[in-house]
Design a binder for these strands. Structure first.
Lengths: 129, 129
DNA sequence: CTGCATCCAGCTAGATACTG
DNA sequence: CAGTATCTAGCTGGATGCAG
């Protein structure tokens, strides 16, 4: 029971909603960031680790494994000592990158507005009730 | 300390990545589904509850509050007894809906391929190490 | 360098019961 | 109808140490 334990299916697979499927793939804390780290092509484990600042080895490995299992990421090992391991997006992964880029762009464009909304909401909170 | 408790910032706000901002908004279990429930315009609390099957009242309310605070969702109360409360997307929410729709579409289009990849990965797992 | 195992604090969300 | 409150099991991810 090490890495072979099969993650239980999350139960938010609402009928017919592709979004839940996508969430199942990209919603955890680091996955999106890791995918972005791969957007410019093949990159080494250590490089990703540096690019996705703050991620632990545990989470990086887990995230990469999951994405590999999902067919989003390819893993290539050069069997030297010490080993060289490169990761890159698969063709499927590339297609996923597109809508994710738009989401990122939305964040860049609209985050200040969200922040304003939050500040405003917090200011006027007492009026609710 | 009811709804006024300020959620602590998640620490995955990696510099300059709009995606982390978006995740901060939509990555939790139900948020995306709730937003989709609003995609056809004004809808009542109970309607959302039925549309997003499986969501508890607690999570629905929390999700709605958060989205309201983020400026994504508008809340409209008709003060009758029993009360009528409608929710709808704000203009900002509508702009967010677009990239989310593409993500959903990606899921619809590619989920079978992901499933295949998973099955295949699980079959060939022993070869790793 | 790349990656796995273990331990654990904290958050998430489900169940349940109560209110205006 | 539309919430609010509480209690808690279980998952998530961080820290640390070991290994090929």
């Amino acid at each position: 029971m090490t890495s072979s334990n099969r993650k239980k299916q999350p139960d938010f697979t609402l009928a017919g909603c592709g979004y839940s499927r996508v969430l199942d793939i990209i919603s955890n804390k680091w996955t999106g960031l890791v995918i972005y780290a791969l957007e410019n092509g093949q990159i080494r484990y250590g490089e990703i680790s540096r690019k996705v600042d703050g991620i632990s080895k545990k989470m990086l490995t887990e995230t990469l494994r999951k994405l590999e299992r999902d067919g989003i990421v390819k893993r290539h090992i050069t069997p030297v000592v010490p080993p060289i391991v490169d990761y890159s997006l698969t063709a499927l992964g590339e297609t996923l990158l597109e809508p994710m880029k738009e989401l990122r762009q939305w964040g860049r464009t609209n985050y200040s507005e969200v922040e304003e909304a939050r500040a405003n909401y917090d200011r006027t909170l007492p009026e609710r009730g």
